Every structure is written in structure tokens, then in C-alpha cells.
Simulated scan of single mutants.
Amino acid sequence: MATIKNGVIGKASGKVGAVIASSWKSINYLKGLPKKRTKGMSEEQLIQQERFLTISKFLMPITPILKVGFGLSKTETMAPTNVAMRLNIAQAITGVYPNFALDYSKIDISTGSYLNGGAMAATVAGGILSVDWDTTLNSLYKTKADDQVIILIYQPEKDEFMTAPTPPTRADGTIDIEIPSHLLGGKGHVWIFFTDRKATKVSKSSYLGELDLA
């Protein structure tokens, strides 16, 4: 694949013979048409494909959260979701092909050096998920009372995610989230991270554990 800067053909797009011209993030590319596969994939290729599918099924539904959580780590050639994919495919997949599974405790939904909520905890009682964190502000990290707190809950049996309807702030120190009745009775996994209002500072996510949703 070649990159076009300001060649004699200028900015190009579409198919020309055996070449496809395209543009992404103001970068112009030339690449050859893919060759037709004449033989099946190797075992190694099948393993890599299954690892990719295992993590992508989990991450794709939470793309809006990943855009915030990994927004500061994106590159000119890699979107935030792809950064999240690469990180989690390396650390969060367990098991042996073809029976891969996810280690939820090792999944990151954000990355960064912003200060999190200190002593954080999550509990469930009477169909209500309660999450608590430290409200102390840190002058070195310049944390703010109006920092947003992003909370994610995942129920594997239903394969459903939920978040707080409106993200609480660092100053709130706690939030109660009502769990929909159809998610009750199973297990739930909870993550949390902090970001400033403009998402220019983001903390690494913390896994708050597996809870009985009752």
C-alpha cells in the first residue's frame, strides 16, 4: 500500500485498474486489489480470527464509551475503538481455541493518567446498584468537582450493557442505578472511570467486580 501526498494525480479515490485509491483522516492511500483466496486459512489465522471476534463482540456495542475512554490514545492511523481492541485482545482473552472466553477483570474500557476515585466500591441491594467513590480533589492532577464519572454494567447472560442515565460528577461521591427487571437474577460486571468535562483528561478504568444482580 502506498501513501499519496501531492503527486501528479492529485487526490484520488475509487478503483483504477488493479489499484484502489482512498482517503482516511486526510491521508491518501493507494493499494492493490485483494487477491482471491485459493486455499483455506491456517490454524494460526483461524485462532487470530476467533480471538478478534471474541473481543469485538464485547467492545462494539460500547463504542461511544470507548471513544471517550481511548480518545486520547488514538493515532493518525488508528481509531479509539481499534486501540481498545488491540489492548484487550492481548490481555483479556482466556481459554484455548476454539473455546475462547473473556476475563472481565482484565478488560479496560479506558486508559489514561487522570486521577480516579480513590477507594471505589459497588454493591447491589433491592434491584439497585450503588457505586461510591472518593470526592477528594487533587491539586497536582488538577481534578475538578464537575469531572464526569462513567459507569458501565454488563450482564453476560442477557448480553446487555447499561450505564447511568446521566453521568454523575466526582463531587457526587455516589450514585444509585436502578437495574431493569429483566437483568435481575444474574451476574453483573461493573467498570468505572473518570474524565474531565471536555474529555481532555481520562483515567484508566477500574473493574469493580462481579456482583449478584438481585
Score class of each variant (00 low, 15 high):
residue 1 M to F: 04
residue 3 T to S: 02
residue 3 T to I: 02
residue 4 I to L: 11
residue 4 I to R: 14
residue 5 K to L: 10
residue 6 N to K: 08
residue 7 G to C: 01
residue 7 G to F: 01
residue 8 V to Y: 01
residue 12 A to C: 13
residue 12 A to T: 07
residue 14 G to L: 09
residue 14 G to T: 05
residue 14 G to I: 01
residue 15 K to I: 10
residue 15 K to H: 11
residue 15 K to A: 10
residue 19 V to Y: 01
residue 20 I to V: 12
residue 21 A to I: 11
residue 21 A to W: 07
residue 24 W to Q: 04
residue 24 W to C: 07
residue 25 K to L: 00
residue 30 L to N: 07
residue 31 K to W: 12
residue 32 G to V: 10
residue 35 K to S: 13
residue 39 K to Y: 04
residue 40 G to Y: 12
residue 43 E to P: 08
residue 45 Q to I: 04
residue 48 Q to S: 10
residue 54 T to E: 05
residue 57 K to D: 05
residue 60 M to F: 11
residue 61 P to V: 02
residue 63 T to P: 04
residue 66 L to C: 08
residue 68 V to R: 04
residue 68 V to Y: 02
residue 71 G to E: 00
residue 72 L to C: 10
residue 81 T to N: 15
residue 87 L to E: 09
residue 91 Q to C: 13
residue 95 G to D: 06
residue 95 G to P: 08
residue 96 V to C: 09
residue 100 F to S: 01
residue 103 D to I: 08
residue 104 Y to S: 06
residue 104 Y to W: 09
residue 108 D to T: 15
residue 112 G to R: 10
residue 113 S to T: 14
residue 114 Y to H: 07
residue 114 Y to V: 03
residue 114 Y to P: 02
residue 115 L to N: 15
residue 118 G to E: 06
residue 119 A to G: 13
residue 122 A to Y: 02
residue 124 V to N: 05
residue 125 A to Y: 01
residue 125 A to F: 02
residue 126 G to I: 07
residue 127 G to Y: 10
residue 130 S to F: 02
residue 131 V to Q: 00
residue 133 W to V: 05
residue 133 W to N: 10
residue 135 T to N: 13
residue 136 T to M: 13
residue 136 T to S: 11
residue 138 N to E: 15
residue 139 S to D: 14
residue 140 L to T: 15
residue 142 K to C: 01
residue 142 K to F: 11
residue 142 K to I: 06
residue 144 K to P: 00
residue 144 K to C: 10
residue 145 A to V: 05
residue 146 D to L: 05
residue 149 V to F: 00
residue 149 V to M: 02
residue 156 P to D: 12
residue 157 E to W: 11
residue 158 K to N: 14
residue 158 K to M: 12
residue 158 K to S: 12
residue 159 D to H: 15
residue 159 D to P: 12
residue 162 M to W: 04
residue 163 T to L: 00
residue 171 A to E: 08
residue 171 A to M: 01
residue 173 G to L: 06
residue 174 T to Q: 14
residue 174 T to R: 09
residue 174 T to W: 05
residue 178 E to T: 08
residue 179 I to L: 04
residue 186 G to D: 14
residue 186 G to Y: 13
residue 187 K to E: 12
residue 188 G to I: 11
residue 194 F to I: 09
residue 195 T to E: 04
residue 197 R to T: 15
residue 200 T to K: 10
residue 201 K to N: 13
residue 206 S to P: 07
residue 209 G to E: 10
residue 213 L to M: 07
residue 213 L to V: 00
residue 214 A to E: 14
